[in-house]
Simulated assay, not measured.
Amino acid sequence: MASDHRPGARGKACRAPSAGGGGAGVKIAILFDPGAADWTPEDIRGVMKAVDEIGTIFGTKGHKIRKIPVRHDMRWFQTARRADLVFNLCEGVHGKSEWEEHVVGTLEFAGIPVTGASLWTLAACRRKPIANSLLQQAGLPIPRWTVAQGKIDDAFPLPAIVKPAAEDASAGVDRGSVVSDRKTLRARVAAMTEQFDEVLVQEYVGGREFNVGFVGNRVLPIAEIDFSRMPEGAWPILTYAGKWEIGSPDDLGSVPVCPAAVPQKLADRLVRIADLSWRTMQGKGYGRIDLRLDDAGRPWVLEVNPNPDLNDDAGLSRMAKAAGWDYAELVRRIAEVALREAQGAKAARELLAPSRRPRATRTA
């Protein structure tokens, strides 16, 4: 959606895919983070679920698939650079999210077509103070915020939510994240600064929460998080447990609903705000914008999320199903967007064309 100065636009000078869909197939490398020392087997299974499913989708169409774990030794790059397309599922290296954009930057610098967002978008969106500043400059509604450095202004509105300034996937967000008095605010900031380099304090917006998804230029049906079943006394927010600990009280209490039941006028307003947010952050590939309504029904932008979770049971896939796409169609469209941007429409059609026979998958 951004202009041609983006790194992805330079890829148009790259090589074309090696062969047609009806012949030898397209070479697709799927990148992923193999994990850190403290990852559980369940953590690793969660990553590999999407890797394996996406590999199967393209493998059954006759394309040549390599599943490549990304490590600091850079051996992954020697394999990835020979691919016609890199399907990027790497959200960090050894569990460190700050390395995510470096992987994408390496691929962009080499002119290799890659799915999802650019280095610039990933880096800017992960650093919430930078993203908030850019969004505010574009005239978008952002709840009042500050980076916790020493004393918080006594005039800062409460309740407020305290969270890491440079993490994603709800890391560092739990039931104690929302504070309603100055003493609790000070205690929460002190506890968070011991764990994270920077801490963001932001005015809490207490109304309905919505998600607007994008794949290329396509806006997906709006989703809503229903917090009506949250445990008594818990703030209606999407915590880390609610997002990742299946069966936990926070998970059971935060139920996604798609499509959301919203009047058309509100839906149009949410989409307009989300679209400008996505374009402001130079979003491309696929992404999700999170918004909330205040007591007066006004939407506020919470976060811009490039490359959100692509598992079949995740939010973007749920929105795609509401649009009439199955999971395989969502995956194909994400790949098509990347190849179309790098190589043009012909290469994208090449990817989607079925081959004569499926090919085996290899893991680097």
Rank of each mutant, 00 (worst) to 15 (best):
A2C: 12
H5A: 05
P7R: 08
G11M: 14
K12S: 14
C14H: 08
R15E: 07
G20F: 12
G21W: 04
I30W: 06
L31I: 08
F32V: 03
D33S: 02
A36D: 09
E42H: 05
G55K: 03
I57Q: 06
F58R: 00
G59D: 03
H63G: 03
H63T: 00
R66D: 14
I68Y: 06
R75A: 12
R75V: 08
T79H: 15
R81Y: 02
D84H: 05
E91A: 10
H94P: 01
G95N: 02
W99M: 10
W99S: 09
E100A: 11
V103N: 09
A124Y: 06
R127G: 02
K128S: 02
K128D: 04
A131D: 02
L135F: 09
P141E: 06
P143H: 07
R144Q: 12
W145M: 03
D154K: 11
A155C: 00
P157Q: 00
P157Y: 01
V162H: 08
P164Q: 11
A165M: 04
E167C: 02
S177A: 14
S180P: 03
D181S: 08
T184I: 06
T184H: 15
A187E: 14
A187G: 11
V189W: 08
T193I: 07
G206I: 00
F210Q: 01
G216P: 09
N217Y: 12
R218W: 12
V219C: 13
A223W: 13
D226A: 11
S228L: 10
R229W: 10
M230K: 15
M230F: 12
P231E: 15
A241R: 12
W244G: 05
W244L: 05
I246K: 14
L252S: 00
G253C: 04
P256Q: 04
P256M: 01
P259E: 11
A260R: 09
V262M: 13
P263F: 05
K265M: 13
L266M: 14
L266E: 09
D268I: 07
L270S: 03
L270Y: 11
W278M: 03
M281L: 15
G287N: 09
D290Y: 03
D290R: 03
D290S: 09
R292C: 10
A296G: 11
G297S: 07
E303R: 07
E303Q: 13
P306K: 00
D309P: 01
A314N: 09
M319N: 05
A322R: 10
D326R: 06
Y327P: 12
A328Y: 10
V331H: 15
V331L: 10
E336G: 12
R340M: 15
R340W: 08
G344H: 04
K346W: 15
A347L: 12
R349V: 13
E350H: 15
